[in-house]
Computed example of a mutant assay.
Amino acid sequence: MARLAGVSRATVSYVLNNTSTMRISEPTRRRVRAAAEELGYVPHAAARSLRAGHSRMVLMASPTVPLSPLYESFLGDLQAALGRMEYTVVQYGGPGCTGDAAVRAWAELRPVAVLAQSGHGLDPQGVAVLKRSGARAVLTLGPERVDGAHALLTDHSLVGQCAAAHLLARGRTRIGAVVPAERGLDVFSRPMVEGMRRAAEGTGAEVAELPLAHTEEAAARLAGRWRDLGLDAVFTYNDEYAMLLMRALQDEGVRVPAETAVMGADDLLLSRLLRPRLSTVRIELPSGQALAELVDRLVRAPGARTEAHDLLAATAVRREST
């Protein structure tokens, strides 16, 4: 490789190992990388770990519940950003892999960092096990903190509060709150309903929970008794449930928004394609690059004091459906 690139073996080593203490010109770096690509060079992970004094594996626990397109995109961006920083990202887990069993399985892989979403049952003892196995950083993603771990907080009550405030400002006083019947989504939907009720306190408005499975049949049944419920607005958990329910309401002759205002969340493209165009809650999350840099800082400073980082912000987007 050194001969092909026209440089010394030492220079090849410096470039491929991203040695920051050596000043090497960008044209030389490009020649070395081009030679490595031409020769099919693949770095040796174990050797790289020995040089660094720790592995470069970041374990992202597989979600235990279905994720919205927004969160799938967010986690994908984070994974790509970590890859650009030369971490090896492993997604691990499956149905039933929670609590102590999950922690033991993660620890066996000796990751340098672990990111676990809500639903895995990670507790302070589990954090301690992971750190003893070599994890320099343990991060949780969800609404609650775990002692010993850095918390990436996602408070979904803000989403419900934002939606209810918008509907109340539009003069709606009998608001339905869709609660998905699908298993595991209550970790998101329950805080949303709580946020809606907080927004409605002292206004005289009411918030009624509406269990709904994500099927056309379930939506049709709910729409069929809509007028009996006496609701003049509904927050549908997300844009996908909004699409489902709004179509069913229109099939029943319920006029949107004249009789019922409909609001979703996530601000997906489909929210602008529906007719009437869907009002929604735009959920804002930090870039994957910003979180990857946080993970890298924690790996480099494993004794850093654990902190909580609020990730989620919510903004109402008014369109024709409200």
Rank of each mutant, 00 (worst) to 15 (best):
A316H: 10
R227H: 04
T140A: 06
T11I: 05
V207P: 05
I24C: 00
L222C: 02
L298M: 06
A61Q: 03
A80Y: 14
L212V: 07
P124K: 08
A258R: 15
F74W: 12
A316K: 06
D251A: 15
V32C: 07
S49Q: 01
H120W: 09
L185G: 04
D266N: 14
H44Q: 07
P191Q: 09
V295F: 01
L270G: 00
A80S: 14
R198K: 15
H309I: 12
Q289A: 10
D186F: 00
A308V: 15
Y241T: 00
G6E: 15
Q117G: 11
V58K: 01
A292Q: 05
T19F: 03
V65M: 12
L298S: 03
A164T: 15
L168N: 12
A313I: 02
R305N: 06
T236C: 15
L152W: 11
S20P: 05
A199F: 13
D232C: 06
M85P: 01
L312K: 10
R305E: 15
T28P: 04
R198F: 15
V207D: 07
L312I: 04
L268W: 04
L229H: 05
L274H: 02
G6I: 13
L268M: 13
A34L: 08
L39W: 00
G99K: 01
L168T: 04
E240D: 05
V193R: 15
M60I: 12
P257A: 11
Q117T: 07
E320C: 08
A208H: 14
R190G: 05
E217S: 10
A163F: 14
N17S: 07
L274S: 05
R275V: 14
E182S: 02
L285W: 13
Q289M: 06
F188Y: 13
V234A: 13
V12I: 07
H166C: 14
R23G: 11
L298I: 02
V7I: 11
L231Q: 08
R319F: 00
S73P: 09
L130W: 02
T173Y: 05
H120D: 02
G288V: 10
T260L: 15
E307Y: 06
E217T: 10
G96V: 08
Y41V: 05
L270D: 01
S25M: 03
R136F: 00
G83N: 07
A177Y: 09
V187D: 12
L4C: 11
A218Q: 01
F235C: 02
V114I: 10
L122F: 05
G160M: 14
S271H: 03
L153W: 02
G303P: 09
R145N: 11
R319I: 00
L39P: 09
R225M: 06
